[in-house]
Amino acid sequence: MIWEADPATLIVLALLVGGYAAFALALKRWPTVIQLIAFSGAILAIVGALTGPVDELVKQRSFALYIFQQLVLVFIAPPLILAGTPDWMARPVLTHRLIEPLARFLTRPLVAYILFGAAFALVHFPPVCDRVCHVHPVYGDVDTVLLLVGLILWFPLLSPLPEYPRLSYPMQVMYIFLLMIPMTAVAAPITMAQSVVYIYYVEGPHPFGLSPMADQVLGGIIMWVGQGVYLMFVFSAIFFRWARREDETPPFNRRPVPLRPLPRQRSHAI
């Protein structure tokens, strides 16, 4: 089998890798090993999910793998890209005087969330999807849109720049919880639908010997259960980072003190 890829995907990959390398060379700095690993992880995830055999099966109308691609694009690649971007690389871009106002607006948590929710829901809304999603060459661009809104979505949680502060831990938990609305709203109806909802997938048979209907239920469950389990892990990770942060907060006073005569101090931490 020849390892094939859509031109749009190749362009995105080239832009990502080329941009990363160009910045590193131009600024003459080298990312840390962890950042490099994270970034290459993101690239590998995109290459694995959007090119070659997986993509081939998607082109043969595998709905389940198509959903898998999308989850990689919004849940796996963006956090890794953000974790792999050093602050000195993001700073020149995001503090540029032309870009900054837009970036500040787009990365406001609610804006990012609504943008992602709207894009994700629209891409899966049958009338829209039937007209846009599987019409080459727009097809590849839908992937790019998902990657982009995914990056914006994760930015408030994983911002590489101190100038763009991350959400506080409790708010991160809230954000993750909020994220379940668009995911469930899209996944549940697909899973429970009584007929094949997208025209493109009506024709059968699909790869793995699945009927179009079974493929759709499988895809829906991958999205539904997949996002639930994934977000549960993210929630756990955030929670324990929060707990550790609070544990490490030095007490006011290491000395054993009687409870009563203490100076009034106020903490803003919650």
């Binding site: 409790p170 809230m174 919880f177 909020l178």
Partner: peptide, 11 residues
């Protein structure tokens, strides 16, 4: 905190 108090139940 107020955003949290609103958006959590809303979700």
């Amino acid at each position: 905190i107020f955003s949290g108090l609103f958006f959590f139940p809303l979700t």
